[in-house]
Design a protein around this nucleic acid. Structure first.
Length: 520
RNA sequence: GGUCCUGUGGCCGAGUGGCUAGGCAGAGGUCUGCAAAACCUUUUACAGCGGUUCGAAUCCGCUCGGGACCUCCA
């Protein structure tokens, strides 16, 4: 199998992935700030890195996947109103800060489940690691790269840059920025007088009296700066140097840049080896984000209750929609695109259902042939009667591995599955002969379908047919309709079908006389 | 202003030098009591101009358009 190649933002090129410890991978992904409801834009990194997590696992790595929850609240550290967002909103909503945080954390977890995202190995919270953050800040001060001013502590970017430039790691190494340029281009902001330089960033902020979230520290009561939590938690759970750090492209600067600076000062090495960044979801060509006031919340997406939505879209539709684009490309939202994804997913999933229903027949039939052939001293595997198709199927399967190994090209994997779907459907319809493929190829087809669709891409069945009572009732209706059709009583049979359709149950008469149904 | 990314057919979107991407939509057909699905066939591409090359959507230059970061941000 070809090597796994990943695009490393640090080097701006694809690199062959190797883990620090053979067989093990440490991965840190920046999680959500739970000061509000997640929107479609937030879904992208969590689905992207869920697939990366799944794929690394699929390759046999034991992965420790750490994804934090930022519940201490960011603040506009260089901002106009240096105020904790969470505490501000808490006042508005008349809730305890932690009550608010709990509410949005629960909502976020609910959304992650619905998307079929696996739980990370560790999901540390910022508020749960104040001690570690303070310890790290003390260490940075001790190393001489931070200074205190009026109960706040700032990172000395200038000094860091001067010192680490010599070691080949200037400030801006990740985002390609030059500190001197930054100084010129930075905006004039208020409340900067405590900083020695504009590029400096807060490690600890002194809390004004109205600030609700506050902790005691060596510098007085306050709260941690935005960037320090990720440095503290990644170091604690993955060590000073780990394999993968992920997040959205908009975090590249300044967040990840600052993380690198902090961790490097404390641990004397670049924290992560591979920095992976997903691109943004756009809407009408513009990034979906708070600042643009163009977000669609996940609850709105699932229910269809947003003026830009023509209909509700299920979590799996959104997952599929996201995976149909490479993670480093922008992905433009539109109803047409979502609808296309919904239909495409249904088509693909139905071919998978069809495949699952014909398991043994083909394999057994061909395996039987193989056994006989082997007994006769011939080739151990049954030869395909359609070698051309057999080769094509194998090529499509091989390409799926190659595509994932090429920086997680899920779009290409899905395209190949779409090319395999007619083969599967053809076997089901009987129009592709059962022995067209060799037993071995057929078995590969089966295992790849499952491995990719379910295990790697994390897609799952959404039809709500789990209820046994509902299944039984539907079966009764199907039987009644079948009887009516036998008697050519089409008025009755159509009534059953059409009324069920109104209720969201679609019946389909299969070629073999069976009736299948899908529930919306 | 600085740094960087990007422009593919009606829509969405792979693809980095020669090989039909794929999905959705559209058209025709097969099947079917009808419907849906499925299957087969099929129309519409690579922003513009110039260059490199035997050959470019793919490399280079210019022009035009779109976007991201530089401020909280996935």
């Amino acid at each position: 199998m070809a090597d796994l190649k990943v695009y490393n933002t640090l080097s701006r090129q694809k690199e062959t992935f190797t883990s620090l410890i053979p067989g093990r991978v440490g991965m840190y992904v920046c999680g959500p700030t739970v000061s509000g409801e997640s929107h479609l834009g937030h879904a992208r990194p969590f689905i992207t890195f869920d697939v990366i997590y799944r794929y690394l696992t699929h390759l046999g790595y034991a992965v420790r996947y750490v994804r934090n929850i930022t519940d201490a609240g960011h603040f506009e550290e260089e901002g106009r109103e240096a105020e904790d967002k969470i505490s501000e909103k808490a006042v508005l909503e008349k809730l305890e800060p932690m009550e608010l945080v709990q509410k949005y954390t629960n909502l976020y977890h609910w959304a992650m489940r619905r998307f079929g995202n696996l739980d990370p190995s560790i999901e540390p919270t910022a508020t749960g690691h104040i001690v570690e953050q303070i310890g790290m800040i003390q260490q940075i001060i001790k190393e001489g790269f931070a200074y205190e001013a009026n109960g706040s502590v700032y990172f000395d970017v200038d000094k860091y840059n001067t010192h680490y430039k010599k070691l080949g790691q200037p400030y801006g190494i990740l985002s390609g920025r030059i500190l001197e340029d930054l100084k010129e281009s930075q905006r004039e902001l208020d409340n900067q007088e405590e900083k020695r330089n504009k590029a400096d960033f807060a490690l600890w902020k002194s809390a004004p009296p109205e600030h609700i979230m506050r902790w005691a520290s060596p510098w007085g009561e306050g709260f941690p700066g935005w960037h320090i939590e990720c440095s503290a938690m990644s170091t604690k759970y993955l060590g000073p140097r780990f394999d993968i750090h992920g997040g959205g492209m908009d975090l590249e600067f300044p967040h990840h840049e600052c993380e690198i600076a902090q961790s490097t000062v404390c641990n004397h090495e670049m924290p992560a080896r591979y920095w992976l960044h997903n691109n943004m979801i756009t809407i009408n060509g513009r990034k979906m984000g708070k600042s643009y006031n163009n977000t669609i919340k996940l609850t709105e997406l699932f229910s269809g209750s947003h003026h830009l939505l023509d209909q509700p879209y299920s979590p799996m539709t959104i997952r599929f929609f996201i995976l149909q684009t490479h993670y480093r490309s922008t992905l433009d939202f539109s109803n047409d695109a979502l609808r296309a994804a919904e239909k495409g997913l249904r088509r693909l999933w139905e071919s998978y259902e069809a495949l699952k229903k014909l398991p043994g027949s083909l394999a057994v039939a061909n395996a039987g042939a193989a056994t006989n052939a082997a007994a006769a001293g011939a080739q151990p595997a049954a030869a395909p009667t359609d070698p051309e198709l057999d080769v094509k199927v194998n090529r499509l399967l091989d390409e799926m591995d190659e595509s994932m190994n090429d920086d997680f090209n899920t779009a290409k994997v899905l395209a190949n599955l779409f090319e395999l779907a007619p083969v599967v459907n053809g076997i089901k319809d009987g129009h592709v002969k059962t022995n067209a493929l060799s037993a071995q190829t057929y078995s590969r087809l089966n295992s790849y379908y499952k491995a990719y669709l379910e295990d790697v891409l994390g897609l799952q069945d959404e039809k709500g047919g789990d209820d046994q009572l509902l299944q039984n009732v539907l079966q009764l209706l199907i039987d009644l309709r079948k009887e009516a059709r036998t008697k050519k009583d089409y008025a009755t049979s159509d009534k059953i079908r059409l009324q069920l359709l109104d209720m969201g149950v679609m019946l389909k008469d299969e070629k073999d006389g069976n009736v299948s149904f899908t529930i919306n």
